[in-house]
Computed example of a mutant assay.
Amino acid sequence: MSQAEKLRVGVVGGGYIGTTVGGQFNTDPRSTVTALADVNQETRRTAGDALYVGDGSQYEDYREMYDSEPLDAVLVGTPHTLHYEMVTAALDRDLHVFCDKPLTTDLEEARELAERDEESEQVLMVGYQRHLNPAFQTARERWQGDAGESDADAAGGESNPDPDFLSAEITQNWISRFEDTWRTDPDLSGGGNLYDTGSHLVDAVLWTTGLVPEEVSAEMVFADDEGRVDERAILTVEFKSGAQGTISVHSDAPCVREHIHVWDEEGAVYLEGRQWEKRKLERVDEDSTTVIPYIDRSQQRSKAEAFIDCIETGETPPATARDALAVTALTEAAYESARSGERVSVDVE
């Protein structure tokens, strides 16, 4: 494939997501990063070096990059509250968009983007990486079957079991690690850890099980006097199916551990992991036997690879704007519940 035929990607935000996922686009032979925008001059310089973007294609204003560069797609890797305007501006210019999670921190903005995405010919993919993880994909098949199959077809003529209850927890040294950064500035992050690392956990629960949240009661410990930056969050969720679950985010632990346990009438699925290593999958049968299924990780795609595949083939992105809407809806309802002390309805429609 010639340089002229490659997907031309502009990166908005030269931080961790911009350089790591941007690097994936440079590694894939079908794409190349051709432009970069960041408000910080030093970040532009270091990210430009990392992504091989020259000074002439580096911009302080992302809008100028959109209008000046011959782009096909953009990668939005900026603080959470900036995503909506950057994604919207890109879609207005008929660009494909890969946006880091969360898609937005405002429910109405999330709903608007989900509806727009479903009417658009452009690809809008959200960076929830659990959707590309073979362990989570395998777990998802238990309750939803393979993509394109009905429940009955996937189970050999029998419906898949419905989850009855679940518990999900992630721990991290988030408060100490990100003190005095944008992640602990609610004007940029939208909240605290529930909107950061916790967003992946919430998404993993909803996407893997297919459960739709109906109500949530939340308790939070806030790190700021205004009650905006949560360092601990415990959500008790009622789902439309009647299932129940707890989702917990702890930000003052010394290390990262993730545990997701989902039970149904046939037993349970355990998804476990430490730090950012590959997650392990265990199945607990109803007689208490533990089985470790074979997980084929050889075909796992990177975020950039999956995004380009969607553009080329028309396949639905692994993580859609509709998926992201559900995460924002539950997260916003949880914050409302923690501040009010009341159980709050979750509006995912």
Rank of each mutant, 00 (worst) to 15 (best):
D252A: 15
G198H: 07
Y59T: 04
Q172W: 11
S167R: 14
D49V: 04
R130H: 13
V11T: 09
P317A: 10
T197D: 14
S340N: 09
I260N: 05
H250N: 14
S189G: 10
V76I: 13
D196Q: 15
V249W: 00
P161M: 01
E312H: 11
G242F: 02
E141S: 08
P318K: 04
Q300G: 07
C99M: 03
L325Q: 14
K101I: 01
M65P: 00
R44D: 10
E5Q: 14
E315I: 02
N160F: 02
T181C: 08
Y62W: 09
P163W: 03
V237P: 00
T105W: 08
H250E: 14
T209K: 11
D347M: 11
A47K: 06
D28Y: 07
V256R: 09
G191E: 04
T104V: 03
E286S: 15
T316K: 15
G23V: 01
R140N: 11
Y294A: 12
E85K: 13
Q244C: 08
E42T: 14
V87S: 07
I260A: 07
V344M: 12
G15A: 13
V21S: 04
E226A: 15
Y16K: 13
G210I: 07
D264W: 02
Q137P: 03
V269C: 07
G18Y: 02
E266K: 13
S31E: 06
R30L: 05
D94E: 15
L75K: 00
I17H: 02
A90E: 09
D92H: 09
L271Q: 10
H261W: 10
P102D: 08
D55I: 03
A50Y: 02
P161A: 05
D224E: 11
N193T: 03
A35K: 01
I311T: 06
G22R: 06
E266D: 15
T81L: 06
E108T: 09
G127S: 09
P318D: 06
F25M: 05
R274N: 13
A329Y: 01
T236N: 14
A90Q: 10
R274K: 12
G18K: 04
P293S: 05
D28I: 05
S150T: 15
E158F: 00
R93I: 14
P79A: 12
I311S: 05
L95N: 05
E349K: 03
A147V: 12
G198A: 08
Q299V: 02
G54Y: 00
L7N: 08
V21T: 13
L91N: 05
F239A: 11
E214F: 01
D106H: 08
P213N: 11
Q24H: 08
D309M: 08
A155M: 04
V76R: 06
R183W: 04
F25P: 01
Q300D: 10
D94Y: 05
A155E: 12
V76T: 01
I247G: 03
A152M: 06
W276N: 14
E85N: 12
Q144P: 07
V33G: 08
V327N: 09
L132C: 10
E258R: 13
G145N: 10
W143L: 11
E312M: 12
F25R: 03
K6G: 05
A73W: 00
K303S: 14
Q3Y: 04
N193H: 10
N193S: 06
V262Y: 03
M86R: 13
T320E: 03
N133V: 15
T209G: 05
